[in-house]
Design a protein around this nucleic acid. Sequence first.
DNA 1: GGCTAAGCGAGACGGTACGTCCCGTCTTTGC
DNA 2: GCAAAGACGGGACGTACCGTCTCGCTTAGCC
Lengths: 198, 198, 198, 198
Amino acid sequence: MPTTAEPPPPRARPGRRRSEESRRAILGAALDLVGEGGFAGLTVEGVAARAGVGKQTIYRWWPSKADVLLDALVEEAELRVPAGDHGGYAADLRAFLGDTFRLGSRPWVAEVLRALMAHAQVDPAFGERFRDSFLRARRDALRRIVERARERGDLPPRPAPDTVLDLVFGVLWYRILATREPLDEALVGELLSVLVRS
Amino acid sequence: MPTTAEPPPPRARPGRRRSEESRRAILGAALDLVGEGGFAGLTVEGVAARAGVGKQTIYRWWPSKADVLLDALVEEAELRVPAGDHGGYAADLRAFLGDTFRLGSRPWVAEVLRALMAHAQVDPAFGERFRDSFLRARRDALRRIVERARERGDLPPRPAPDTVLDLVFGVLWYRILATREPLDEALVGELLSVLVRS
Amino acid sequence: MPTTAEPPPPRARPGRRRSEESRRAILGAALDLVGEGGFAGLTVEGVAARAGVGKQTIYRWWPSKADVLLDALVEEAELRVPAGDHGGYAADLRAFLGDTFRLGSRPWVAEVLRALMAHAQVDPAFGERFRDSFLRARRDALRRIVERARERGDLPPRPAPDTVLDLVFGVLWYRILATREPLDEALVGELLSVLVRS
Amino acid sequence: MPTTAEPPPPRARPGRRRSEESRRAILGAALDLVGEGGFAGLTVEGVAARAGVGKQTIYRWWPSKADVLLDALVEEAELRVPAGDHGGYAADLRAFLGDTFRLGSRPWVAEVLRALMAHAQVDPAFGERFRDSFLRARRDALRRIVERARERGDLPPRPAPDTVLDLVFGVLWYRILATREPLDEALVGELLSVLVRS
DNA sequence: GGCTAAGCGAGACGGTACGTCCCGTCTTTGC
DNA sequence: GCAAAGACGGGACGTACCGTCTCGCTTAGCC
């Protein structure tokens, strides 16, 4: 008799359930503290104290304080992947860049992104998680746009699809991390001129 | 006849001179420790112990351990600015990218660059120093190449000079920090195709 | 029937309890180190290392290293207050002096007493604690003996009770701190001849 | 021909002479600092800075900062030994106690005495110097008085001469170090009643 | 209703590194 | 050769957080 695949029972364990209230308080406190003192001002002890929570509760659910922050970012910033179809490569790109830059222009988001990328360099385990979840999702969204253009025959022969991703995210992160210049409409135009060769 | 102002004699103060031996030992120890354990393994106490030096001697001459590392990088990697004239924009660019990528391909250099950029996000004061010295010098070198091309009439109308800088360094840093893919010859080709529009 | 007020239960707080093992290890390490290198050889770092304990655990429970040492002395030396009734002033005094001198003749006790009195001069806050707890308790014990003699009519008119305390403890401490001559039976006789005027 | 003993030439060494000005500035600065922050506030670096002097100059002439302080005390307090003859034991004692207590009642003197006795416990080498010079001189002064009384037949049979010294200096130091009660006329009376048995 | 099993706030624990203070020494220029 | 200046190796300070480990308590499913 073949065993049928069971849908995993969503909840059968005894014991107290995870506190939604604490979870929210922790994410909120993490954002608060990063906003106030940058990533250097974000400590597990500080989050616990601010959230009115025991440190153990944080360590129980997140492997590091950067993971807390990443969760907070995803939850708070409504990080939808904007890969909708706007009828053409240029229009799709413009929409993607507009959405992405608009998000990265909110100061606290930029601050959190800086903190995450910095921590990814220092904590290799988090670095892997960060690349494999957050960064990959962003790349995949843009890759879908490029792929769609290729299928349409919309895509210029150069630069190659992967280079498109490197150029777009390279400039984005470089401005956030290094020059701190705004992600503005002018930059969208420059990028489009490079990528679309109108 | 009035005496003309003399250039001030470079040294007249009393007191023991700064120890060149200690300075070198500190820079060497910093590179060693970063190589062994990443930036997380770099501590002022560790550097002092490894270099056979008092902690105060480090704090006396560098504002933070990241500044030590930056000095060590500049001194060790012979960071010459490769803006020589190769006869044309494409050739100049190719030379610059080759030099730069060759340097960034050495693993310990990449490790140090990651550490510095990460610390620049966490320590705002160091961030400013890092931007205003190291990053600016790199940008200026490339800017001179672009400028020379513009004077020659060699420069394509798009992308704009500043965008060139953002694209080149954006991709460079993005690969170092995020994707960790190699800075190889293929990337040089891709960049040239975008920037020169052959 | 109303319930009568109950004495508060001695422990209801959450959180891990203080480690008795660490407490003992700290006191023991403090005595060891003073024995080996005098008070100058007693450092918080040394105690922590020797006791296998974090420095914070010491700072959490004692305001200074001298307080650690005082606790260790009180605990280790079984500092009972020898104010038993031996039938008369002279006998009481003789018993008190014998007990006290016997204690102060143990080399490590003398070493600790020197360290405590010295630190009391250097650290005013500890000085106050030292006077108000340790020194006061010793004085009170002798004062009870003198008081009992006064009630019995046993007490000579001079010296006044407070002067008795000053003379006894004065000589005791002077020998410990200054001359370092032994606290021997001869001194007991001399003091008795002065205080009792037999 | 026998060589005649030459009187040592009082000054023949080459080089700059010891600066009297620096010496005075150092002693003054030491007293200032002890007055301001107790012995804990007395550091060699502090004295050097306050006196406008190099640290080496201090180390050249004094083995420890406590020796500086001792010199300052001796120089400043005009520590004459008051063993003049007043015609009888009681009168001599009264004069000695009066002089001594008057000196010890000046707050800065008491502070310095506390510091010296404390440091003598912590630094064994200084302890020996302190006992063999300062403390011994005080004891000798009182011993001369007692001796004179003995020769006159003025001295009571008890307490023994050495006990007299222990009692007097014991009470004196005990008040300075432990109880911090004033060295007043009442105490002189009490001591006389014990020592003279009028 | 009692039992077992989480999860919770609280907080003490062994550690590591921080940045500072001061030590006592050494080295330089200048008198 | 003494003096001021000041850098040097070293050691301890007291603090801040780390990540772990009990506590007493609460909240859930299960027999």
